[in-house]
Design a protein around this nucleic acid. Structure first.
Length: 324
DNA sequence: AAAACGTGGTC
DNA sequence: TGACCAAGTTT
């Protein structure tokens, strides 16, 4: 009986829930919105310790965000990844005219808000009676209903089947807590799970969901050239889909001129490929097309990818070597 | 509709 | 240490 499972869930949640998460305590819809975007494909720890509070301090309201420069938004997002989220958040703030929609049906029209995020914001900020379907809930549903197949649409059906429409806030929060702390991917703690009596997958939880077919990530070999003039370096703002809006050094598929000084290798693992780049220093050349000069202090004000920060580290390291 | 999209945590 | 994974959405 599902209502018994709900009772077990709420009892567990009262004792073991993560009740101090700031976006769970606040009643400000905008803060909840920001948290939901930051938390997409991102662990709670990262958002909590590095990004949530600084972002809200810099952009306290939806209106502040709407009137901000998108480059400043990207700077606050630097290091968080999936930068389209930041640009969509900013674009959405402008579309809203300072007023966040108060239901999922309208929230989902905003860029960067899909069904699960729309339901999450609406359930948490406005108590709208809708289930969410994040990675935590998905894993619980796969196991609870013994479903091996990864099928988004079917999973939504199960999400509604297990949902408790009477208390959407607590239900959704509790589900995420169970998924994050009990029904974990590798070593689920079934003995402590509130759903243990009803879970159809408890005898072999690791079979649910079916393991992904692992295709190995391709390696992209690249050459990065740091153009230097006195204390300044050449950077360009990327307009490609990848890392769009972020600043970076000159990068190409060509081998570097052998006369250039070799600084070292930079490796960066991305979601769908691994970047392996050889980094060179060029002090003789003019500024490449589309690039601008920045000294190290000015670079600090720009938003750079992790890989380009590794290049900076090599430049600084090279300078220290040179001066000794 | 499969692939693109970042980074760090974890074991 | 490398592979998997994380409060998913967009194209």
């Amino acid at each position: 009986m599902i209502s018994l499972a709900h009772n077990a869930l709420y009892h567990w949640y009262a004792q073991n829930g993560r009740h101090t998460l700031p976006w769970r305590i606040t009643t400000d819809p905008y803060s909840i919105y920001v948290s939901e975007i930051m938390l997409q494909q991102t662990q709670v720890k990262t958002v909590l310790e590095k990004f949530y509070f600084p972002f809200l301090e810099r952009f306290p309201t939806l209106n502040d965000l709407a009137h901000a420069d998108v480059d400043d938004v990207l700077k606050m997002w630097e290091g968080l990844g999936y930068y389209t989220r930041a640009r969509n958040l900013h674009a959405a703030a402008r579309q809203c005219n300072g007023i966040l929609p108060t239901n999922a049906n309208d929230l989902i029209k905003l860029p960067g808000i899909g069904q699960s995020t729309a339901h999450a914001i609406s359930a948490f900020a406005y108590r709208e009676s809708l289930p969410i379907l994040d990675a935590n809930v998905k894993r619980i549903l796969h196991r609870y209903f013994a479903v091996k197949e990864r099928n988004e649409n079917k999973l939504w059906e199960y999400a509604y089947k297990l949902f408790d429409p009477s208390t959407p806030f607590d239900y959704n929060q509790a589900m995420m807590d169970v998924g994050a702390t009990i029904c974990t991917p590798k070593k689920p703690l079934c003995a402590c799970c509130p759903f243990e009596r009803w879970c159809q997958g408890k005898s072999s939880p690791l079979e649910y969901p079916m393991a992904k077919t692992k295709t190995q990530k391709p390696i992209r070999l690249r050459t990065i050239i740091v153009y230097q003039r006195e204390n300044s370096y050449a950077l360009t703002q990327r307009r490609t889909r990848f890392l769009s809006g972020l600043w970076g050094f000159y990068e190409s598929e060509e081998l570097a001129d052998e006369s250039l000084k070799y600084l070292g290798e930079v490796t960066q693992h991305y979601s769908h490929f691994t970047l392996q780049a050889n980094v060179y220093l060029n002090k003789e050349s003019i500024l490449p097309e589309g690039f601008e000069w920045f000294d190290l202090d000015e670079i600090k004000k720009l938003s750079l990818s992790r890989a380009d920060h590794k290049v900076i580290a090599q430049i600084v390291g090279d300078q220290k070597t040179y001066h000794h």
